[in-house]
Design a binder for these strands. Sequence first.
DNA 1: TGTAATTATAAGGTTAGCTTAAGGTTAAGA
DNA 2: TCTTAACCTTAAGCTAACCTTATAATTACA
Lengths: 230, 230
Amino acid sequence: MKEYSAKILLVDDEPDILEIVGYNLKNEGYQVFTAANGDEAIKKAKKKKPDLIILDVMMPVMDGMEACEKMRKMPELEHTIITFLTARSEDYSMIAGFDVGADDYITKPIKPRVLVSKVKSLLRRKLQVEEIAANSGSTKLGDLVIDHDQYKVFLRKEELVFPRKEFELLSLLTSQPGKVFKREEILETIWGVDVVVGGRTIDVHIRKLREKLGDDSINTIKGVGYKYVK
Amino acid sequence: MKEYSAKILLVDDEPDILEIVGYNLKNEGYQVFTAANGDEAIKKAKKKKPDLIILDVMMPVMDGMEACEKMRKMPELEHTIITFLTARSEDYSMIAGFDVGADDYITKPIKPRVLVSKVKSLLRRKLQVEEIAANSGSTKLGDLVIDHDQYKVFLRKEELVFPRKEFELLSLLTSQPGKVFKREEILETIWGVDVVVGGRTIDVHIRKLREKLGDDSINTIKGVGYKYVK
DNA sequence: TGTAATTATAAGGTTAGCTTAAGGTTAAGA
DNA sequence: TCTTAACCTTAAGCTAACCTTATAATTACA
C-alpha cells in the first residue's frame, strides 16, 4: 500500500540533529536528504523536488527565513510543504515564518516520536489536498467516488451533496455493485427492523439518487428491488 | 492507509476469558497478545508495546492495580490505554483504578459485543488524540494559525481567544481538515467516554467557533457531525 | 390491452440543528 | 477565604433541511 515513499529535505547546521531526525524519518520509510545551510538547501530542493522541507531558522551562510522566501518563489516547489524548526517561545519568529510562506512550525527540543507523527500528518494532508480519492475510506466506481470519512460523493470530480438517507442508500447499493437489493432488505438496513415507512418512500429516494447521478446507474427490477450498475 | 492493525494485550488468569475475548477481538482484526498475571503482563507490554491493555483486577502473583501502576511509569507505555476488567458494583475498585492511572474500566460479566465496541471507541479516541498531539508546534491552515504549544490562535495576524473547550474542539476539527467528525466521536474525544453532557452542548461550542472564525469554515453534516474546511 | 408496480411532483410533517439567554461551575485574584 | 469573572452547560423556541406521504401519470409485463 505504501507504493510511494515521500521525499523529505532536512536542513540544519547541527550534524547531530540531521543524524537523529534523519534516522527516525528513514525508519518510517521516507527518503531523506540533508543540507547544512540555506544555500545548499535551495540547490538540493531544486534537484530533488521534495514533498516536505524541514528548515532550521538559525543557520550560517543563509538562514531559514531567507531560504524559505526564495524557495517559495520557485515554481517547482509550489506544492512542497515547508516547516520551520525553532527554539520554543520565540513568538515573533513564528509569525515571521508564516509571513515568508511556511506552512507549519515545529519547536525544539525535538521529540522524535512527535516529529514523526507530525510529518505523517502533514504529508497525509498534502495527499488529501492533491488527490481527493486515493484516501482511506473511499470507494471508486468508475466516475463515482464515495468518501465515507468525509461523507462526500464526487462524480467526475464534481462534488454532489447527498443528505443522510440518500447517502446511506447509495452506500448500500454501491457496496455490492450488480447485486439486487430487495426492497425489504433496503428497508431493514437503512430504516431498521422496527421502523415502518410507506412503500413509496424508497422510490422517492431512489429518484433523488438518479436525479443526481444521471440516469442509468441504478436499475429497477420490477417486483423485487434495485441494483447499482456502473 | 489503514493497514495498521492495533495491538491489544489481554490480561486475565482465567483461560476461558482469554479465549473468548481474544477470539472476538481477533475477529475484528486486532493483534491480540495474552498474559495470565501482572508480572507476565509487564514483560509482554514492554516487548510488544500494545496500543491497549485490558487488565483484570483480581489476579494471582501480581494483581491488576499493581501492574497498572508499574506500567504507567514506563515511558514506552506512555501512550498506551489501560482499561480494567472488574466485577460489577465494586465501585471502590473503579475509583482505585483511576487512581493508579487507568483510562477506563469494563465490568464483568463480559458481553463480547459491548466489549468490542468499547475497544473500538477507545482506540479511535487514542488515534484522534495522537493526531492532535502531532500538531505540536503551530500549524497554518489558510488564514488560520494555531499554536498548540501556547494555546493561541491567529486569524489573519489577529489573535483570537479560545477558552479551553473551544480550543480543543477547534484542534480536533482542524487536525484532519475535510474529515467529518461524528457528534459521538467529538464527545468521546473532548469530553471523555464517561462524561455525559447534553446533546446541545456541542452546537453551542460550534457556534462560538463560527462566531470567531467567520462563518464558512465549519460545515454541518446534518444527522452526522461537523467538519472543518479550508 | 389491462393490471400492478414504479415514477414524478408537490405538499405536509418531523427532526436536527441554530440561536439566545440564563443558571451553574470553576478558576483566578484580592 | 471570599469575590468576581470567565467559562461551560442547559433549556426553550425557532428555522430550515430532510423525510414521508399522497396523488396522478407512466411504465413494464402478462
